[in-house]
Write a protein that binds this DNA or RNA. Structure first.
Lengths: 139, 139
DNA sequence: CAGAATCCAGCAAGATACTG
DNA sequence: CAGTATCTTGCTGGATTCTG
């Protein structure tokens, strides 16, 4: 890595669409898909292999039945997760990542790594900001 | 790339913390930071170089003054964006990515690329799902 | 167990108006 | 230009209850 690289990524890199006033191009799509409160956590959990409904819920601290249902439903609709129903009694259902869903785990790992790598710096920045702006109520 | 790789990423890869029931570990941090409606768009815009307040607003379709202020404020607090005030009249302010902020653009590009690469498959999955579940009101 | 259905609170975010 | 202040709304998501 070289030094003093503020603008490492060029605009062209980030604008595959070429439309000047629409720099999103899919970025919004991904975020609308996994930017919510639970989707990523479900994907991470399923990255460990197929899971049943209650298993996922137990693994993800704080998620409600309702939100897990909604989350897993949307992931299924997007083709990121495969839902399989076994006609037993009581009903048994498992969820697993599709190939598309699995391909996301690399990116998620990238985000997690970035977070860990910059956690300290960001925390320090926040402390500094809060000290410089004691009145400011932005958190 | 090899074929039939559903579980390409292992759980260990995704769980740098090692705590079984907490698979997030920073993933939530990043998403809380850039998973909102506007942050990523602002970062992408600033990836093109320093911008003034109104420039950003004009570039990002649909963002209100209020939301741009809040977004840019949070990014500044997190140390992802540097805010510079020039004591001219009328006031002039510009925003630019810090090194930390710039390091995020790679990941964002990854997300954008992923989105473009899978857009078709996902759309097809949605069509299929909606056709198989005509009643379902999940969008 | 795996959900569906309902009710409700809180916050994100839009619109608008005003200021240095 | 670059914001701040206020009001209002819509959606996210939590709690609870019910079913196959």
């Amino acid at each position: 890595m070289s030094l003093t690289h503020i603008g490492v990524t060029t605009p062209a890199d980030l604008d595959p669409c070429g439309r000047e006033h629409h720099p999103d191009c899919g970025i919004r799509d991904v975020l609308d898909r996994i930017g919510d409160k639970w989707s990523v956590l479900v994907i991470v959990e399923l990255a460990g292999g197929p899971r049943r409904f209650r298993e996922i819920q137990r693994a993800i601290d704080g998620i409600s039945q309702r939100m897990l249902t909604l989350t897993v439903r949307r992931l299924e609709r997007d083709g990121l997760v495969l839902r399989t129903v076994y006609p037993t009694v009581p009903a048994q259902v498992d969820y697993r990542l599709t190939e598309t869903g699995a391909s996301l785990t690399h990116l998620i790992k990238g985000l997690a790594d970035w977070s860990l790598a910059h956690r300290a710096v960001i925390g320090e920045a926040q402390r500094a900001y809060d000290q410089a702006h004691p009145d400011n109520e932005i958190r």
